[in-house]
């Protein structure tokens, strides 16, 4: 089965890398400084249980970051020939065919998506429909009621 790729801008990659380093440093501190006494059995030591739960979460976060860094693909400006179609990192202007209103999205990976700022995930239903489209092409968002957009502009 193909492993999941994580698309990140340079800024996003730097952030994930820093977070990973911070988590590793935190783990080192937690295992050396914060470990409570485990002389009592875990049945009667709630502090130990909380500590174990914290460590479990921390390890999961570190593993998550390592997985992302292992499978990262950097988003960069595509080659000239590809700039006329929607690729990762593209900002796309769309016109609603029904009333000519204009909507705009930037297509990014899931880790940097923030739809309220117009940054949508390539894995969202809208993002999936946009990828590969060229200027002039129609994008159909399927729903209980269809929405049809025409791609008006693509920029990087």
């Amino acid at each position: 089965m193909e492993e999941k790729k994580y698309y990140l801008t340079k800024e996003g990659l730097d952030r994930v890398q820093k977070e990973h380093n911070d988590l590793l440093a935190f783990r080192k501190k937690k295992t050396m400084d914060d470990a409570p006494s485990i002389l009592q059995s875990e049945d009667v030591n709630p502090e130990y249980l909380v500590y174990q739960e914290d460590l479990h979460l921390l390890e999961a976060k570190i593993a998550e970051h390592e997985n992302i860094l292992k499978h990262v693909e950097l988003i960069s400006k595509p080659a000239k020939g590809k700039r006329l179609e929607v690729c990762m990192g593209a900002t796309v202007e769309l016109v609603d065919e029904s009333d000519k209103s204009v909507n705009e999205y930037t297509v990014l990976g899931t880790l940097e998506a923030n739809p309220m700022e117009g940054k949508i995930s390539s894995e969202s239903p809208v993002g999936k429909q946009l990828l590969g489209k060229k200027i002039g092409e129609i994008v159909v968002i399927n729903s209980p009621i269809e929405v049809k957009y025409r791609v008006q502009n693509i920029r990087y």
């Binding site: 739809p115 949508i120 969202s124 239903p125 968002i141 209980p144 929405v147």
Partner: peptide
């Protein structure tokens, strides 16, 4: 009209459980 809510969800949801 359910349309605006579906549009919003279509641009916001990319997690497979939610999808």
């Amino acid at each position: 009209d359910i349309k605006p809510w579906w549009e919003w969800a279509s641009e916001s949801i990319d997690n497979s459980v939610f999808a």
